[in-house]
Structure formats: C-alpha cells, structure tokens
Amino acid sequence: MVLGWLRLLLLATTLPRGTAGIKDCFFCELTDSTRCPSTRMHCGDEEDCFTGLGVAQGVGPVINKGCVRATSCGREEPVNYMGLTYILTTSCCSGHLCNRGPSPTGPATGLALGSLLLRHLL
C-alpha cells in the first residue's frame, strides 16, 4: 500500500508543469444514432469538452462529442453528413468527462431544435 502511494507521489512530482489543467472528455464521431458511442480522449490546456448538436430540414438530428477550443463554444457552423448540410451548435462544459450525458433528447432539446430549424428556414 505504501509503495502505491509513493509511486503516485513520484508520478505527480515528475509531471511537466501545465498538465494539471488537462482533462479527459468523451469523443464520438458525427452520428445520427440516438446513442453516441463514446471513447475517452485527452484535451489540451486551452480546450473544453463539448457536445455538438446538428439539425437539418426534414431529418433527425446528428450529434458528436470531443474537445474544442473555448473560443468555438456556442458557435453554429455547417457540417456535411450523409450528403446533407447540418447546422451544428457546440455546447461546452469545463469539467473532467463533463460531456458524458446522454444524447440530447427531451422537451428542452426539442425546443432548441425547433428554434434552430425555424431560424434557418426563415
């Protein structure tokens, strides 16, 4: 037991400066599945975890997860998936594995999707 604590202490003191801010986030490619099969990825110092939600007229939403620079949070941008152009909105969080939540569903997401679609149709 003491040997395990010593190894942990040694590891903590030998890590380069700046690695304390590095976090893990869940990652999955852009998908139209209701479940986003996630794997862990390491993010850089200037990155946050994100969940992206994309909408396009007449089809269901697409999602993805990963790491992104904080300056990209909350932005809308076009992405192509399966021959269609979706408007992808990036929602960020700053905690370790904070984007683990289930795929966006429910009344609040439906309202957000509806407003996004309406904005791009008008």
Rank of each mutant, 00 (worst) to 15 (best):
M1V: 13
W5F: 15
L6K: 02
R7K: 08
R7M: 13
L9M: 09
L9N: 01
T13P: 01
T14D: 01
L15H: 05
L15W: 03
L15Y: 02
P16C: 01
P16L: 07
R17V: 05
R17A: 10
G18L: 05
T19H: 09
T19S: 12
G21E: 14
K23Q: 10
K23F: 15
K23Y: 10
D24N: 11
D24W: 07
C25R: 04
C25I: 03
F26W: 15
E29A: 04
L30S: 02
T31H: 07
D32H: 13
R35I: 12
P37D: 14
R40Q: 12
H42Y: 03
G44Y: 05
G44H: 06
D45V: 04
D45M: 08
E46R: 05
C49P: 05
G52Y: 00
L53I: 13
G54Q: 07
G54E: 01
V55N: 02
A56M: 04
G58M: 06
V59Y: 08
G60S: 12
P61L: 03
P61W: 01
I63Q: 14
C67E: 04
V68D: 00
V68C: 00
A70W: 01
T71W: 00
S72T: 00
S72W: 04
C73I: 02
C73G: 04
G74V: 03
G74H: 02
G74P: 11
G74D: 05
R75H: 03
E77D: 05
E77N: 08
E77V: 01
V79D: 08
G83W: 01
L84M: 12
Y86M: 10
Y86K: 10
Y86T: 06
L88D: 00
L88E: 08
L88R: 07
T89Y: 08
T89E: 13
T90H: 07
C92R: 04
C92I: 01
C93Q: 06
S94M: 11
S94W: 01
H96R: 14
C98M: 10
C98S: 09
N99D: 11
R100E: 11
R100A: 13
G101W: 04
P102S: 11
P104V: 10
T105K: 15
G106L: 12
A108N: 09
T109I: 15
G110C: 08
L111A: 15
L111T: 13
A112M: 12
S115Y: 12
L116S: 14
L121G: 11
L122T: 13
